[in-house]
Simulated assay, not measured.
Amino acid sequence: MTFEVVGRGYASDMSLKPFLPSERQPASSQRIASVAKAVHAMATIGERSAAAASLRDDAFAAEIVKTATLPASTTTASTFAAKAVADLLDMLGPASAFRPIMGSGVMMLGYDRYASVLAPTYSRSATNVKFVGEGAPHPVGKLSIKGPTLTKQKLMLSCALTRELATGSNGLVYINTALQENLDAGLDEILLDATEGDTTRPSGLRFGVNALTASDNADPHSAMVADLAALGGAVCDVGGANLVFVAAVPQWLAIQLWCPQLRVPVFPSGGLSAGQVLCLAPRALAVVGGNEPIKLDVSDQATVHLEDTSPQPLTTAATATYPTMSTFQQDTLLVRLRCAMSWALRVDSGAVAWTQNVGW
Rank of each mutant, 00 (worst) to 15 (best):
D13G: 06
L92W: 07
V5Y: 04
L253S: 11
D188H: 11
F207Q: 14
P313D: 07
S326H: 02
L228R: 06
A11Q: 13
L165K: 02
L16H: 05
G270V: 12
P282D: 05
M341H: 08
L161M: 14
A254Q: 03
H221F: 08
N217K: 13
E63S: 14
V352A: 03
G204M: 07
V264P: 00
A86T: 03
W258P: 00
W360Q: 06
H305F: 03
K146F: 03
A254W: 08
R206Q: 10
P18Y: 13
A11P: 01
P26D: 06
S12L: 10
L262E: 08
S203V: 06
G275N: 05
A234R: 13
G9P: 02
N128V: 12
P323V: 11
A38L: 10
A82K: 00
L118I: 13
G290Y: 12
A11G: 06
A81P: 00
A61H: 05
A281V: 10
A247Q: 05
L55C: 00
T303W: 09
S116K: 14
P265H: 11
G46Y: 08
M156E: 15
A286L: 00
L334W: 14
T177S: 11
A185M: 06
L118F: 02
A52G: 03
Q356N: 14
T316E: 13
D57M: 05
P18I: 12
R8Q: 13
Q330F: 11
S116L: 07
P268E: 03
I64R: 04
G135W: 07
T69Q: 15
V132H: 05
A234S: 12
S299Y: 06
